[in-house]
Design a protein around this nucleic acid. Structure first.
Length: 637
RNA sequence: GCUAGCGUAGCUCAAUUGGCAGAGCCACCGAUUUGUAAUCGGUAGGUUGCGGGUUCGAGUCCCAUCGCUAGCUCCA
């Protein structure tokens, strides 16, 4: 029996022996010890499973596959611990997930924070005992009988639904679970684990089913990786825009206004003003025109657009105006289309690019609302491009470039791009047009030089789309830009243009948003910058702290001088000690704090305190030059 | 929407088994004239989210409601 290793070497395996023995003999003791599982012909198997012919990859903790196995095994260990500590608990499913694992339990007992600690400790015992994971295969009927005897009704249901004649069970210690595997050689391979939280989850994710208790945990190959991960969680907590936003007085939400509706405070307003001005300036520069449209429209509009058919669940009830139903807009597109429909268009005028910071309202389930990241009222940095099919490639390429330009301005450096293609069924438009559009998106992406991933069948029913996600300062991914081709609305609204052949043709529409929504983008920015906005975005760029009342004159002189540079500068006139005032501006994450006293009477040099806490004396001229640069010339305020 | 947890002054938090709602910061007033992360003293601030109920007595227990937080298939 021939086994091919990743380096291409071919080894002889003895029929009947287990992978562990093979690895010890043919590869080495070291790898045998760190082997968590094997991947034979791309199928994951236990190290204790019999050898097979094919190409072998030994899975260790350093691979994502290995980490998944550690976590999956950890979820079994957790289920073991929970059933030991809380007899009568029914187990359901417990997969490895992106940053850990979970297991869903059905129990009359409500798991508390203290319970989680006990579970974690019990798991440590099981891990210390190095109990081997043993695989057994048996008939589905036999397995059903065994789980039924144990009262594990969910397992019986799962086996039923699987419909497979034979299923596999994994046992460690006295705990047996239905599982596809593979698993670690023994429980001791879980080197670091942590139980994180508990929350409700419906059986099979269906709200009609019973609510189970889902316990989340994570596991790693070593203590340091776990600690790093916990630090990341802590870091995320510190950056949380829901904490920083009100703390830095950037935005607020009130019970009286309603959930999911944000208020931008004056300081947040400064940031938004800069973001919007930058956006407007760059849109004009990039060949867009800006339009403004109202917040409501007659039901007839939304019938034509199809929103009342397929989007009604996200729209608010209509209001009656003179006996007519009007709807608050959940999207801007029908309005831009009406702008288009006001007259005839020639192919010579294409492409047409219309942008709007359009405020929309969408019903979202109360439970999914989340700070600024998921709200019910928000402003999209929306635009619609009307073009011909042959212009699609260039237009998409331009939008991608533009998107990256905008996002890079906010210090996002890493991007992930997703191309979603035609759904298998339930789509509008010709397949041939879809194919051409997808080819255009694909080649535009290739031209951008960005790596991208194709999500087959994930496109909207009306056209393929490109989504761009950024990685923030701590590596979390946020999908911001979306570029969607639309074959549907031009059809529904019977949009036309006159071609060179003097005949009428159907334009293609592109919907796109670069930041997504200003609210969500702001939330992401707060976390990305940890509230320490770069100078051009900072609400207060320079705080001038006079040492005493005697120095108010010189402070105001400095203030006026900086104002001529369009700098947002404030003099702290309060009757407090210097240290007190400095502290407050530091806490507010002000980029520059300048203390002025007797030493600065001439203002030739100023004493500048940087965010780092470093204090530098520099000439006023040099400081102004630096500010101008960092403030992008004050062009956006 | 559903499940669980949580709502005390603008903020951060106290308040024994049900037994007089309190502190610091912030704000305001006064003193102080200050040199790079908190000067001192005083004053004000509350129908304990809102509404019911149990009780001699409710921040505490019960019901309802509003809001916040976590989660609600990444399928054995």
């Amino acid at each position: 029996m021939i086994v091919t290793l990743p380096d291409g070497s071919r080894k002889e395996a003895k029929a009947g022996e287990h992978w562990r023995d093979f690895i010890v003999r043919e590869i080495g003791q070291g790898l045998a010890k760190s082997a968590l599982a094997v991947k034979i012909n791309d199928a994951m198997k236990d190290v204790s499973s019999p050898v097979e012919e094919g190409s072998l990859v030994v899975v260790t903790a350093s691979s994502p596959d290995g980490l998944d196995i550690i976590r999956h095994s950890a979820s079994h260990i957790m289920a073991d611990a929970v059933t030991q500590l809380f007899p009568g608990t029914k187990v359901t499913i417990g997969p490895a997930i992106e940053n850990g694992f979970y297991y869903d339990f059905d129990s009359d007992h409500r798991f508390t924070a203290e319970d989680l600690e006990r579970i974690e400790a019990k798991m440590a015992e099981i891990i210390k005992a190095k109990q081997p994971f043993a695989r057994a295969e048996l008939s589905a009927d036999e397995a059903k009988r065994r789980f039924a005897e144990l009262g594990e009704t969910y397992k019986v249901e799962i086996i039923q639904d699987l419909g497979a004649p034979v299923v596999s069970l994994y046992t460690h210690g006295h705990f047996t679970d239905l599982c596809r595997g593979p698993h670690l050689p023994d429980t001791g391979f879980v080197k670091a684990h942590k139980i994180l939280s508990v929350a409700g989850a419906y059986w099979r994710g269906d709200s009609k089913n019973k609510m189970l208790q889902r316990i989340y945990g994570t596991a790693f190959a070593d203590k340091k990786s776990l600690d790093d991960h916990l630090h990341l969680l802590e870091e995320a907590r510190e950056r949380d825009h829901r904490k920083l936003g009100p703390e830095l007085d950037l935005f607020t939400m009130t019970e009286d206004i309603g959930m999911g509706l944000a208020l931008w405070t004056p300081k947040g307003g400064v940031i938004r003003t800069v973001i919007e001005n930058f956006w407007r300036r760059e849109h004009y520069r990039h060949g867009y025109e800006i339009v403004y449209t109202p917040h409501i429209g007659r039901s007839r509009l939304w019938e034509t657009s199809g929103h009342l058919g397929f989007y009604k669940g996200n729209m608010y009830s209509p209001m009656d105006i003179d006996g007519e139903d009007y709807y608050v807009k959940p999207m801007n597109c029908p309005f831009h289309i009406e702008v288009y429909r006001r007259r005839k268009w020639s192919y010579r005028e294409f492409p047409i690019r219309w942008a709007e910071l359009g405020t929309v309202y969408r019903y979202e389930l109360s439970g999914v609302l989340n700070g600024l990241k998921r709200v019910r009222g928000f402003t999209q940095d929306d635009a619609h491009i009307f073009c011909r099919l042959d212009q699609l490639h260039d237009e998409i390429a331009r939008v991608i470039d533009f998107s990256l330009f905008i996002l890079r301005a906010y210090d996002f450096e890493q991007f992930k791009v997703y191309l979603s293609t035609r759904p298998a069924k339930d789509f509008v438009g010709d397949v041939a047009v879809w194919d051409k559009a997808e080819a255009a998106l694909d080649s535009a992406l290739k031209a951008s030089g960005l790596p991208y991933q194709i999500n087959p069948g994930d496109g909207a029913f009306y056209g393929p789309k490109i989504d761009i996600a950024v990685a923030d300062a701590i590596g979390r991914e946020w999908q911001l830009s979306t570029i969607q081709v639309d074959f549907n609305l031009p059809e529904r609204f019977d949009l036309t243009y006159v071609g060179s052949d003097n005949a009428e043709h159907r334009p293609i529409m592109i919907h796109r948003a670069l930041m997504g929504s200003l609210e969500r983008f702001f939330g992401v920015l707060i976390e990305h910058y940890k509230g320490a906005f770069p100078v051009w975005l900072s609400p207060v760029q320079v705080a001038v702290v006079p040492v005493s009342e005697k120095h108010l004159d010189i402070a105001e002189k400095l203030e006026n001088r900086l104002k001529t540079h369009n700098i947002r500068v404030l003099v702290d006139r309060r009757n407090e000690k210097t240290g007190y005032k400095v502290r407050e501006w530091v806490v507010a994450k002000t980029p520059y704090i300048i203390v002025v006293g007797d030493k600065e009477s001439s203002l030739d040099t100023v004493s500048v305190r940087l965010r780092s806490g470093e204090q530098v004396d520099m000439t006023l001229a040099a400081f102004e030059e630096q500010l101008d640069r960092e403030n992008r010339g004050g062009a956006y305020f």
